[in-house]
Design a protein around this nucleic acid. Structure first.
Lengths: 196, 196, 196, 196
DNA sequence: CATGAATGAGAGTTCATTCAT
DNA sequence: GATGAATGAACTCTCATTCAT
């Protein structure tokens, strides 16, 4: 596959991502993607065999860019508490961005494809994020910013909570205030008093 | 609608529930349900217009029976902490029961049908359960079993956490141990020390 | 499947036979048959899954009617030689009826579906016809009409010859005269002198 | 067309022959041949317009090489009976070589392309082979090896029989023994006693 | 000459939905 | 009420064929 093909593939993945953001995973047909890309029916099949493969590659592309979930939060002299707070506020924005994300599509995808626990990109990202938070908490504990007995479970607790907020946002719906209150709550369990 | 019709409708809903548990929401077709009920294609349409309506009624039927999420947990002389623990262990069982539940179907349904926040059964159940837990926490606080500053958010935090565990169970997968550790963790944040 | 369905199925098989006679086996699509029957695309699938199944049933229906290949040849006081000659002349007619037969389609079908030697309808018909001819030859030998050392192979030889003429008719093409000459020839090998 | 082009054309025909032997005629697509040759899609069209033309040229190439069907059978001091027997045994081998021949493809091709009786390669080969056998029989008769009243029809009878065995081999299937018995039978009709 | 990406027609198949009985 | 045959829209997927490079 030549240079041009690589570009085209990227182009398709980009358009496909938009479609997945718009419609989720299951409702998306090859036809949808063909139309979004304004290419021919058969043309798409030169690059991808089915929506499953396309979504997988969209996900992979995302995960390659996006292992820097803390990138926005870190500055030179930020304290652990600062970083944690910034991270949570970043997540809040993400949670409220209803249409413009792959959350629903991703959940639907995993419903269909019960991947083994290995080669499960979602799990890897979850675990990796949890470990970063854990380190952060430990740093915070050392600096007397936080208190936690079991930082590992505390970190995973935050991750599960975010997951809960995320799925709630996609189903029941959630407000920014609600998220703020939950952020305050978990910070309070870590011994941080947040002034709003 | 005659008595017989009511019965038949119930029968269909029962069979349909099984199908939804088996296949989720989106993959289920009218044909699937017709076959599960062993009735005629046209017959189903006498009672329901589409899978959407059927699922809605399955959900409604469930919520009518099942607002007794604490039923199993309450005994005469149980303390608030006992009840909370029993409730959480009940939830754990539910979380681990992978195929035999409507979780996935329900999520898929809400993905498709972004109901307004009112007439959203899921929201009602969430809020109602949260309030019950809140009361429980308050009772516990009065009896010096628990400690919580903001019992409302603590209760909602538990609910969001459960939601997070639930979606994780359906996608990444989760173990009983992991759930236990999270249960211990939240109890510890409430000032309860769990001995295992 | 009710009475009406059985009728419809027969109707479809009838129309399908015409299509197979017209186009052979491979070139026939479900669409061709749908159009020949003037039914809907989906309608056909209520009765048959694919052209393979349809052709198989066409063949089965034929073989159920047509195990009387000698029916036309037999009269009260006909001699073995008479019967054999009549049979061969019947076959000649069949061979020359170019479009109006399933020969080509059948060959194409067996090319695609190398059935085991059992459950091979074609083989059964071949063997059964060969045995009938064998009996006929034996009867003829007893009555001093024929001569044959090995009537079984003589009978099979006739069958293979007919097969050869049949495929030749479908590919190279063959004339009535040519067939007549071959009929005369094999009769002469059996000691029968044919006057033309 | 330059020397190189001629070579390439030969190369394609060779690969194409393999494909036809493998899959018959109808199932073969331009794509199959492109892949077998490992050339570009467009490249193939520089040499051939469609599979029809390709097969025709494969057939022509074969017939140019292979009009020597008796080549293997003839030695200096062989009798007519020897040559005939050798020829028939050569044919037997050919009949049993199931995959490695163009028989099925050729039949399929002629089903599709009812060529006029002239410019029909198959017919030419049939007639030419029949004539050779005829000469052979006449020679045999002169030397008192054979007996035949009508050597022309006897020769054509052998050819039709072989055709019958060939199509049977491709559809019903045939064993070496069965072929042997038929060879013995026709030799016996020619007055040759075969000892096995 | 040669390439291979791109097109679009067409075959297969499944279902929601209707309707005569 | 109940049936199930029938319809037709919508999707998937595969190739023959073309054409810019």
């Amino acid at each position: 596959m030549g240079e041009k093909s690589v570009q085209k593939k990227k182009f398709i993945l980009d358009k496909a991502r938009e479609v997945f953001m718009e419609k989720g995973y299951k409702r998306v047909t090859m036809k949808d993607i063909v139309e979004a890309c304004d290419i021919s029916r058969g043309g798409l099949y030169l690059y991808f065999a089915d929506t499953n493969q396309i979504f997988l590659e969209v996900l992979k592309a995302d995960s390659e860019e996006a292992d820097d979930i803390f990138s926005g939060s870190i500055t030179e002299d930020a304290t652990a508490a600062d970083i944690l707070l910034l991270f949570l506020q970043e997540q809040k924005k993400e949670l409220l961005r209803k249409k413009n994300n792959l959350t629903q599509a991703t959940y639907e995808f995993y419903f269909e494809n019960k991947l083994g626990r290995k080669d499960n990109v979602m799990k890897k990202q979850f675990d990796s994020a949890a470990r970063i938070i854990e380190k952060l908490l430990e740093t915070g504990v050392e600096n007397d910013e936080f208190y936690c007995d079991n930082c590992e479970e505390a970190a995973r607790n935050i991750m599960f909570l975010l997951e809960g907020l995320r799925i709630t946002a996609q189903t029941i719906g959630i407000t920014g205030d609600e998220i703020d209150r939950q952020i305050s709550y978990i910070l309070s369990t870590l011994g941080v008093e947040v002034v709003e």
